[in-house]
Design a protein around this nucleic acid. Sequence first.
DNA 1: ATGGTAGCGGTGCTA
Length: 259
Amino acid sequence: MKIATFNINGIRAREGALLEWLAEAEPDAVLLQEIKSPDDGFPRAVFEDRGWFVETHGQKSFNGVAILSRLPLEDVERGLPGDDGDEQARWIEATVTGKAALRLCCLYLPNGNPAPGPKYDYKLAWMDRLRARAAELLATEEAVVLGGDWNVIPQAEDAARPEAWAEDALFLPETRAAFRRILHQGWTDAFRTVEPRPGHYSFWDFQKAAWERNNGIRIDHLLLSPQAADRMTGAGIDKAVRGREKPSDHVPVWVALDA
DNA sequence: ATGGTAGCGGTGCTA
């Protein structure tokens, strides 16, 4: 079972690019971020007609997450618990059942810039809420994929030019400490496990010819519960997608699990 | 060198 995460930066603008990648990569489920659309603006039929089950949690213009799956999506939950006043659509989770059940959690973690400031406070508070939900998920002792656009550069090795990110909300020590606090609950960073060397990125800015200069960062992560990590057979980043027509600024990151 | 690009929505915000 192949599970991917892909920040598509606008579902309507990326419909063609997404369909092309789905056809060639053949994932079983995809966690999408930044659909930038309300639920009723998501082109559901385009995907349903091609055999995908679709669950969305969108809002107008910004943010928005969704899950595509070849298998039915059950027990769907929308919104990260812990703040009933949070209006930003950044979390959706659901279960798929193949040979065994797998809980899919799709997150779009706040960017947090500029830091310090209210946006950075929101980011750190959101990460606290995420840590609480992540602990609950681990306590189920089920196979869980906690994936998405984390907006966190975990280590200097995850940036082509780490010095350029020193003051950025994606790389500040407090951000990385909050990420480690979650990781060290017992999660496995799928890609880092199969590729410990530096130089592998999932995002290249649209500006300043970041792609042409390979000035990238690795911020899209798939964290696996122990029960999911035991089933991992591979992981990767589909870098070539960034070089195509009308690309997102992110590329798909995937993990393969037994059964 | 404080720019640059892209999506959304129809202006300026977000990233």
